[in-house]
Structures are given as structure tokens and as C-alpha cells.
Design a protein around this nucleic acid. Sequence first.
RNA 1: GGGGAUGUAGCUCAAUUAGGAGAGCAUCGGUCUGUCGAACCGAAGGUCGUGGGGGCAGAACCCAUCAUCCUCGCCA
Length: 588
Amino acid sequence: MKFNHRTHTCGALREENIGSHVVLNGWVNIRRDLGGVIFIDLRDRYGITQVVFEPHYNLEAHELGKKLRSEFVVSIEGNVRKRPEGTENPLLDTGNIDVMVDKLIILNHADTPPFPIEESIDVSEDTRLKYRYLDLRRPKMQRNMMLRHKLYQSTRRYFDAMDFIEIETPVLMKSTPEGARDFIVPSRMHKGKFYALPQSPQQYKQLLMVSGFDRYFQIVKCFRDEDLRADRQPEFTQIDLEMSFVDVDDVFVIMEGLMKQLFKELKGYDVDLPLPRLSYEEAMERYGSDKPDLRFGLEMVTLNDVFANAEFRVFKDALNSKGIITGLLAKGCGDYTRNQLDVLTDFAKKQGAGGLIWMRVKENDLEAPIAKFLSDDEKKGLIEKLNAEPGDLLFMLTGPKTKTLNIMGHLRLEMARRLELIKHDAKPALLWVTDFPLFEWDEETGRYYAMHHPFTAPRVEDEQYMESDPGRVYARAYDLVLDGNEIAGGSIRIHNSELQAKMFKALGISDEEAAEKFGFLMNAFKFGAPPHGGMAFGLDRLSMLFSGESSIRDVIAFPKTSSGMSLMDESPSTVDEHQLKELHIKLR
RNA sequence: GGGGAUGUAGCUCAAUUAGGAGAGCAUCGGUCUGUCGAACCGAAGGUCGUGGGGGCAGAACCCAUCAUCCUCGCCA
């Protein structure tokens, strides 16, 4: 089909173009047919321009213009004209002009779209995902994709300027036992053998350090076969980096520089450096989360010392079993009704709490079902410690430390929502969380797991406990948190094969298994591995937060549903029997 | 794997206690020369997610199942 190249985009024309003859190509956003005159909003990714078909101006074009419908693809030629006085549209950048059409070419017809292509639409996500190519035409999605593009470009510019080298690592790799479930790829050439898709390029980037590349980065797809969430997809994108001859603070400086640049270039916001740091313990005790949202206060307080001599059995049990008593002050919520408190109690119970203790703070007393179990000293201590005043409400939870703090952390977020503590224009809250435990004990399997990953270095002063008491070893690991979201995590790595062997031993991985699964890394470490460390950013989450979205699906062009399906192309799908046969696979 | 919410016209939703499937938008036709959420008049449009059950009668009740969203577990 013959058509002319555009002279302008649909967002370009202004009053200075009045009088010029132009060609515009784009989609019919909407048609307004007034009988004698037809207006078309012509759309491309740059904007919208109103084009006009008028019989006295051009009869032929007007006749053909009657056929236009939403989402037709057209090419028009015409003259830019100043809009008649009073008909300007201030909502459009091009709103002071319109284009009188001399020639219309319909490049393609379009079925009526299942939903309107508009800024904000009220359409179920299934429908949007099924017709994702239409959803992506919407200005909002176009903006999200463009912002993501800028995120890539700015990141690449930053790391290049900092002497980092972008190196691609394999997508087909060896399955590793630790961590998330692998996506598995069968090998046709090696019967019964499988590749795995990387959960992250962790081992490869460490090997690149052994190779002397010194500073590496990559924007890379990673895959984890685990259940999904609003902020988790089975395939996702990381900004991955690794540096040699560094300690924790060196990594922080690089990352803080990146955050400063990204915030400046993408949001026009100046981040104050250095970023605040919280230890894992402190984050848990004060915010009940290892990714605390610091856009608001509402801090939790550990009350163990207030109740050190408690008679009340619930508190006594908690203290005797090395548990925790944690409190939260809800300012001015003393008028919450029994019904509201029951709802919050249910909320806590759903998270796994035994119950939720609440107390209304009165002029000279505490009003609560459990008040009679507390001594006057305890009541006084509680009020002082929580800084409570008459009219306030306070919550308490008791139980095993991590779990209880977590539940209170959820309650903290819930109360923040109810009290609308997160202002729309709140300053972004960035912080480091440091000093994670190296290991996590798992009751079910009766063994330790690496909290970060098995290549994470212990703090030097804790190395001595690696064998005797792994539970008290802290890691040289750190997370970067933005507005209550974990957006990056990393660590200084083990670079010596003996320490790495100790690590595997603590994880209950036998020498044989370690040699089989990680032998190549252990071997590499014997040939002169520099001290190194790095980080990986969740680019999707970062992109989501910059776009102001609440799901990473809104910043991924073609995402999966929460059951891992692609509604557009209907994957995953069955394959032919002969494909399976070639792969030596039999379904059962 | 567990919990919660949802599923009715192309889209968003309604339908009281089980008793005539409806509205707005979109679509189609008509009127209309300055609209920009055009307006006005008219029309068409339904496997009530799917399968089964009880019942004179089901969109509604029961069972199963599928899908979507949120969430706990899980995510080194």
C-alpha cells in the first residue's frame, strides 16, 4: 500500500507549524462525526492531533472519512490550521491547531477493540492481558515502558562511566540444589540430562571476578519456579553487578551513586547520601520487617524488660521461651470500637498470631481485658516505654521472636493504611538493611539454610563460630529497601575454597555433593580468587516504584498471571509427542 | 499446598425472599458544520465461567471443576 512518510509525529505540531502541509500516520483514537464535519483524534506514541474532514474543504476526503472507526490505521495529508477562536483544547499539547485533511489513506481496518484505548480504564486484568498488544497502546502503559527504557539506558551509562564491563552469562546452566526451584530444560543430545535456567548469574559473575574482570554488570533475565505475587514473576530482570577488591562500603558507594543518578534522571529527585542504615535486628524490632517502610514512623517497641518479672502467664511464657513481647502505639485510636478491634485481632490471627492484646489508654489507667493481670509498675512502665497518652490505643503481641515481630510488622502496615500515614507526596524512603544472619534454621528439615545464598561471606569476627554455633554467625550481606520494598540485595562473597567448604558443611552439603554441584567454583577459587562482592537489583520492582504502579505486571510488556500463564499466547502449552520423544521424556 | 475475594451482553456492573435477565459505556442505523467523554433518536446484542445434583421452578441453593486477583507457605 502506498503512503507517505510522516513529516511530524502526532505530538509535534504547534502554532508555528500553521500553514504548512504535513503528513501524519497513526491510529484513530476516536471519531466525532457531526454530519457536516468529522473530527478524528489521531494517535501515535508521541501524542494526539485532531484532524478535520470537511466537505467544502475536500469532499473526497470527507466521504472516505465517514468510514473511519476506532483503531483504524491511517495516513493523512493536510494543512495545519489555527483552530477557530474558542475551540482550542488546552488538554492537548497540539490543542491550538488542527489539520484540515486533503488526502486520507486507510492503511488498515480494525475490529472494535474489546476495551477503549484510554489513559485509565476500568477493565479486568484478564482482558487486558489477553489483548496485551492493545493494553500496551494505552498512554499509561506506553509511559511505563518508556520509563523502563530510560532505566536501562541510565543504568548502562552509569556503569560504563564507572568502568564496569557488561558481560553476558549463559541462560542454559547447571541446576543447583540450594535456593529457589529451578526451571529445567531437557537436553536432546544428552539423554536424561537437563539444563536449568539461572535463578541469577551468581556463580558466573564470581567466576568473572576470578578471571580478573574486576567490575562486571549485566541487565539480565532470571528465572525462579516459585509461586507468584504482585511483585514476583517467574521470569524477571535483574541489574546484576560484581566488584573485586572491595568491602561492603565500596559496594554501597557504587550503588548509592546509581540510585542518586536514577532518581535524578527519572524522577528529578535529589537523593541525600549516604543512605541510612539499619541492622537486620533493629529493623525487625522497630519495624517488624527486613524491608521496613520508613515513609512513616509508627515504630514498634520491645517490651521484654518492662515485663521481666511478669506474673501474667502469656508474658511469662514468652520470656521463658526466649520469645518477645512487642508493642505498638496507635496514637489517638482509643475510641476504636470493640468491633474494629475484633477485625484487627482477626487480621493478626490470620498472620498466625495466637491473639492480639489491646489496651485503651485512659486518664489514670489502662482499659483492657488483660489489665487486671498487670501490676501498677508494669502499667506505668508500659505507658512510659510506649510514650502513651490518654486517648491512645496500644497493641501487644507475644511469641517466638521473628514470627511475632513479623506479625506486628504487618499490623504496623495495616494501621498505617487505616490512619493514612503514607502521604501521596511522601519523600522516597531508601535505606540499607545490614548484618543479616548468615543462616536460617529450618525446623521441618532440621538443618540450616543460607539466608542469602551459600556464597555469602560471614563477618570476619564470626568466622570462628561457623562450625560450633552457626546460628550466631552474621553475614556480610545487605539489602537495599525503597518504601517497604526490597529492591536489591547483595553480599561480600567467600573467595577462599576452605571457607566455602566450611559453609557447605554447615549447610549439610556433603563433600561429594559440593564437589559435584559447585566443584567448578571451588576449583576456580584455588587459582587466585580476589576478594569480591556485589549486588543484584530487581529492575521490575524499581521500575514499578518509579512508575507509581502497585504490580510489576504493569511494567512488564508481556507478564504472566499469578498461576504462571500467559493469557495472550496461552503458554505453557502441550507439545507434540515427537518433541517429547526426541527429548527422551515420557509424561506420567 | 492453605485462606480470602471475584466470574451475568464486547467492557464495567445490577437483578430484594428462588418465580418476567437489566443499566451505563461500546457497537450498528439515522439526524446534525466546531466537536474534543460530542449531542439527540432508534436498533441489535446473553452457554448467567464449566459440569453435575436436589427442586414445580435456579443467575441465586448444594457438590465438583476452571480462570483471575490478593495473601500465608514458598521465593539461596
